[in-house]
Computed example of a mutant assay.
Amino acid sequence: MMKKTCALFLVLIFTLTSVTACSKRPNTSSISDKPPVSSPEAPASSQSTEDITHERSILNDVVVQRGRDGLCVGLKNDPSDRLRTIENYALVSDIERLLFLASRSGAGIHSETEKRKITKLPVIQESENTTPPNEEMWFYQGVSSKNVWMRLNYQPFIPGQGMNVWGHKDLIVYIDPDNNDNAFLGIQDASNENAWNIILLPGYGSWLAKEIDMFLYMTTAM
Rank of each mutant, 00 (worst) to 15 (best):
V165P: 02
A102R: 01
H110M: 10
R82C: 09
A107P: 00
S103C: 07
E193V: 12
C22F: 12
P156T: 08
P133N: 10
E193S: 09
G108V: 00
G205R: 05
P79H: 07
L99T: 01
L101Y: 02
A7I: 01
Q188K: 06
V92R: 03
I212Q: 07
D213Q: 11
L91D: 04
H54Y: 15
P159T: 10
S145F: 02
K120G: 06
M218I: 01
K120W: 05
D170Y: 03
L121F: 06
R25S: 09
T220H: 11
T119Q: 14
T15C: 13
N134I: 08
T20S: 11
A42R: 13
K4V: 02
R25I: 03
Q161T: 12
P159R: 10
L121H: 03
E41Y: 12
I86M: 13
S145R: 03
L98C: 11
P40R: 14
I172F: 01
K3S: 10
M222E: 14
R66M: 11
A209V: 04
G160D: 14
K34L: 15
N192Q: 05
R68A: 13
L201H: 00
A183V: 03
H168Q: 14
R97V: 02
M163V: 11
D61G: 06
V37K: 09
T17C: 12
M2H: 10
M218K: 14
K117L: 10
I118K: 08
Q65I: 03
S111N: 09
V148I: 15
N88Q: 14
T53K: 08
E128N: 01
G167T: 03
D69Q: 07
S105E: 04
A209K: 05
T130D: 09
V173E: 03
I118W: 05
S48L: 10
A107G: 12
L91W: 00
A102I: 02
E193Y: 13
K3F: 09
G205V: 01
Q141E: 15
G186Y: 03
N180Y: 09
M137S: 12
K4H: 14
T49R: 04
N77S: 09
V62W: 01
G203R: 00
F9D: 07
D78H: 07
R104W: 03
I109F: 07
N194W: 04
K76N: 11
L83W: 06
R25M: 15
A7M: 14
E136C: 09
I58T: 13
N180T: 08
N129C: 07
S30Y: 12
V143C: 10
I52F: 12
G167D: 11
D61Y: 15
N180I: 09
Y217W: 09
M1Y: 08
L71M: 14
R104C: 05
E211H: 06
Y154F: 15
M2W: 09
N192C: 04
A21P: 00
N153F: 06
Q47H: 07
R56S: 15
K146E: 11
L121Y: 01
D170F: 01
S46V: 00
F215A: 08
N60Y: 03
N88A: 15
V19F: 15
A44M: 11
D178V: 05
L121D: 08
Q125F: 10
N164V: 12
S80H: 08
S39V: 06
R25L: 13
P156F: 06
L59S: 01
S191M: 13
A44Q: 08
G108D: 10
T5I: 12
I31V: 06
N153D: 10
V165I: 12
